[in-house]
Design a protein around this nucleic acid. Structure first.
Length: 329
DNA sequence: AACATATTCAACCGCACTGGG
DNA sequence: GCCCAGTGCGGTTGAATATGT
C-alpha cells in the first residue's frame, strides 16, 4: 500500500476498505496494467455469467484482481460499446456545454456521450481544457475562462461543425453553394447565450436573441479550423463529424435512461442540421445554409492541423479590446 | 542519436452511498 | 439502527509515449 492508502479514522466502509487492502497483500492480487490474458478471462467470464458483484466475479473468474479493478477495466475499456479514439467536435461541444451546466459530474456528462466513459471525458477536460486555463494563468472556474469558453470556444465549435457539415454536402448538386463572398455567413442559434457587444461581430450567429452578424473569414490560418488532428486546444478530434455514425440510436429508442439523448424528434438533441442540448440548456439550431465557396471550404482540407484554431491568449486580449477583435476574425 | 520535457490516459485511490441481513 | 459488501464517483498518479532541444 502506498502513501495514498492512508485514510481518515472514522469512515463508513473503512474497515471493508482496509480489508480490501489487506486482502490485496495476502492474496497477492495483481495491480497495474492488464494483460491480454486477463482481459480475455474477464470478457469470457462476463459473456458467460454477466456482470455485477465484481468481487465474487473476480474470484470466480480466477482473476487476481480486486472487484473494483475488474469493474473499471470492463466499464472503461473492455465493454463492447466503448468508443475509442478522437473526440469529435460535437462531443467536445457537448462536453463543454454539459460541464458548464453540471460541473465535474463526469458520469452524468458521460451518459450523454454514448460510448464515452466518465474517465475519458475527465481526462479530456483535464488535459485539454485545464491546460489552457493553466497556460492563461487563470482559474478554470474563473468567470473569464468560462466566458471565453461560452462566448468564443463553443460558438467556434459550432461554426466548425457547421462548416464540416457544409463541406460534406457541398459536393451535392442541391447544395450549390453560391457564396459569393470570402466570408461564410452562418446562422447559429444558441438559445440562452447572450453575447457581449464586444463579441457581437464574431459569429454569424443569433445568440440568445441577439442577432450577431458574425461573418468569420476563413481565409487566414489563425481563424482556420483545423480538421485533421487537432482541435482548438490541441485535442485530437475527428475531422468530420457524422453523428449518425456515433449515435445509431433509433428514434424513440429504448434506452432506459430518461436523460438519454434522442435524435431530434422534437425533444432530442442531434439531427443532421441541429444540435439541441438534452435539457435545452441552450439550443444549437444550426442553419446549414452557410454558404461557403471553394475557397472557403479549402481550409477544411488544408492540412494545418498543428495549432490552435484560435489562440486563447489572443482571444482574451481581443475580449478586452473589442476594437481589435476583427484582427482575429 | 541522446536526452529532457511535456502530454496522454489507464489504473488506482479515498470516499460516499445503497441495500440486504 | 447497525454492520458490511457492493457499487459508483471524482480526484490523482505514474508509466508510456510524443515532442522538443
Amino acid at each position: 500500500m502506498d502513501a495514498r492508502g492512508i485514510r481518515g479514522a472514522n469512515q463508513s466502509g473503512r474497515d471493508s476498505q482496509e480489508d480490501e487492502q489487506q486482502a490485496m497483500m495476502m492474496e497477492d492480487l495483481r495491480r497495474g496494467p492488464w494483460t491480454v490474458e486477463e482481459d480475455l478471462t474477464l470478457i469470457n467470464y462476463i459473456a458467460n455469467h454477466g456482470e455485477g458483484r465484481w468481487n465474487s466475479l473476480a474470484r470466480s473468474a480466477g482473476l487476481k484482481r480486486t472487484g473494483k479493478s475488474c469493474r473499471l477495466r470492463w466499464l472503461n475499456y473492455l465493454r463492447p460499446d466503448v468508443r475509442r479514439g478522437n473526440i469529435s467536435l460535437e462531443e467536445q461541444l457537448l462536453i463543454l456545454e454539459l460541464h458548464s451546466r453540471w460541473g465535474n459530474r463526469w458520469s452524468k456528462i458521460a451518459q450523454h456521450l454514448p460510448g464515452r466513459t466518465d474517465n475519458e471525458i475527465k481526462n479530456y477536460w483535464r488535459t485539454r481544457v485545464q491546460k489552457q486555463a493553466k497556460q492563461l494563468k487563470c482559474d478554470v472556474n474563473s468567470k473569464q475562462f468560462k466566458d471565453a469558453m461560452r462566448y468564443l470556444w463553443m460558438p467556434r465549435l459550432v461554426e466548425r461543425i457547421q462548416a464540416a457539415s457544409t463541406s460534406t454536402t457541398a459536393a451535392t448538386p442541391t447544395s450549390a453553394m453560391a457564396a459569393p463572398a470570402p466570408m461564410a455567413t452562418a446562422t447559429t442559434s444558441i438559445g440562452s447565450m447572450v453575447f457581449p457587444p464586444s463579441l457581437a461581430s464574431m459569429g454569424g450567429s443569433d445568440f440568445g436573441g441577439v442577432q450577431v452578424n458574425a461573418t468569420p473569414s476563413y481565409s487566414t490560418p489563425e481563424n482556420s479550423c483545423t480538421t485533421a488532428s487537432s482541435d482548438s486546444f490541441g485535442a485530437q478530434v475527428s475531422p468530420v463529424s457524422d453523428l449518425a455514425e456515433y449515435y445509431p440510436i433509433p428514434v424513440g429508442g429504448d434506452n432506459p435512461n430518461p436523460d438519454y439523448y434522442q435524435p431530434n424528434n422534437g425533444q432530442g438533441c442531434y439531427q443532421e442540421s441541429s444540435l439541441t442540448s438534452p435539457c435545452g440548456f441552450f439550443n444549437y439550431g444550426l442553419d446549414f445554409q452557410a454558404c461557403m465557396d471553394q475557397n472557403n471550404t479549402q481550409w477544411l482540407d488544408d492540412g494545418d492541423t498543428s495549432d490552435s484554431l484560435w489562440n486563447m491568449e489572443d482571444v482574451f486580449y481581443s475580449e478586452q479590446q473589442p476594437a481589435s477583435i476583427n484582427n482575429y476574425y
